[in-house]
Write a protein that binds this DNA or RNA. Structure first.
Lengths: 229, 229
DNA sequence: TACCCTTTCGTCATCTTGACGATAAGGCGA
DNA sequence: TCGCCTTATCGTCAAGATGACGAAAGGGTA
């Protein structure tokens, strides 16, 4: 029996939710699109393997990202090579340029989640991706994790776009502003501002110390589904 | 490399939170207290193994309980026998009598969680238990999972005790009553009532169809820590 | 200076919540 | 039967949170 890790790495890019995918270089599913990942080595735990694979396959540094274990997939027939148990991880990243010329960054690329069809991914990776998306969506509600999609300093509008894109809804800018500013230790004003091409300059914030979001942002209330192409 | 499942089975008993523990019958940690669990068989996935072990070791039927995957533990040194990866499961049960004379129910017993000291459990089971407790506590907030601790029909006071015992707080009976009755499809009145030894009879409810709890029950607001001995 | 655009502040009615008073509905003892 | 004890349920009220939306602020640019 062998153990692998699979990574669901999400980011928000051009107002769309993207997932990091690779093209498989060997069998099985050679040439097919899949989640990045690989085998856990003998003296490694799965956390370490996730960090290593993230660096090797995508050039991203998991220590600077949000990285958490998602769940494990153990169906005996999930890999044609035999019994392969996979521990899936969820990573959330700001819109970083991928170091394309990295050591082993074989064709890693950001793909809009909405562009993926049912059979586009190898193995049971469609299911893993779906579970990762649901975890991310749920955690935006009651944790401060949305800031993991943002660069070190960001505007409230950028933060709102994260919610809108991940949830696929549209939120009132004024109420959102009031809410996140009042939430306990969610945001810390940096005192600086960013002057955009057009419109009023926006104040820049850093993530505050809170990990749980209080009061929470409830999806149930946000009932403004928006067309996502 | 081998694969095991470990089970965190929780219940509320005598107004205290209990976990189901067994005494290990063989090495390593022979005679020591541990979470129930065992090896996943070759043509089984971990869900099936969790159901099987639950039945074998405790006589409980996981199909009638809430049973969900918690997370996996992969540290190479977590088992002295070598590399053993464990997929942990969380089960929530009403206060059922254990079929003590079951096939293999070797000394399975309910133990108050608060009675456990730091080194009382074998392997990394203290950590697994802690993760299971935190998951259960968190899920009471924004899901209807509290009903999984209750029998098929129950009173609102019984449901409140679940929250109080799992969170270790004390909740105002009147506000709790108002809240759960108003929550969307959380409770369904059965029309029957239970006459207690003392006090006014209480209406009996069944769990409603909702899985998410809206509006949620927030712990942050419940700031009445109560002495738990 | 007059716009345009986005951010930020205000207002208001509605809903939710915490604190807690009051009543209802059983059993029990006098 | 009448109080009384206990617990369940309903009500009230002020404070806080929320949704809808108006209005001002603060940059560019024509």
């Amino acid at each position: 029996m062998s153990l692998t890790v699979d990574l669901v790495v999400l980011t928000v890019r051009d107002d769309r939710l993207h997932v990091l995918l690779i093209e498989r270089g060997k069998e099985p599913f050679r040439g097919k699109t899949a989640l990045p990942g690989g085998f856990v080595r003998s003296r490694e735990d799965s956390d370490a393997a996730a960090l290593r694979e993230l660096a090797e396959e995508t050039g991203l540094d998991g220590r600077t990202l949000h990285l958490e274990q998602l769940r494990s997939y153990t169906r005996p027939d999930r890999d044609p090579r035999g019994r392969v148990v996979s521990v899936a991880y969820l990573a959330l990243a700001p819109d970083l340029p991928l170091p394309v010329a990295g050591t082993d960054a074989r064709r890693a690329r950001w793909t809009p989640v909405a562009d993926l069809g049912p059979g586009d991914l190898a193995f049971d990776h469609a299911r893993i991706l779906a579970d990762g998306l649901e975890r991310a969506r749920a955690k935006l509600e009651y944790t401060t994790l949305a800031t993991a999609f943002c660069p070190p300093t960001f505007t409230i509008t950028e933060l709102r776009r994260v919610y809108e894109v991940v949830w696929g809804v549209s939120l009132d800018a004024r109420n959102f502003h009031r809410k996140v500013v009042n939430a306990d230790d969610f945001l810390v004003a940096t005192g600086t501002r960013r002057v955009p091409d057009v419109g009023r300059p926006a104040a820049l914030y850093r993530a505050g110390g809170a990990t749980v979001l209080y009061p929470p942002m409830l999806r149930a209330a946000a009932q403004h589904p928006v067309a996502r192409t």
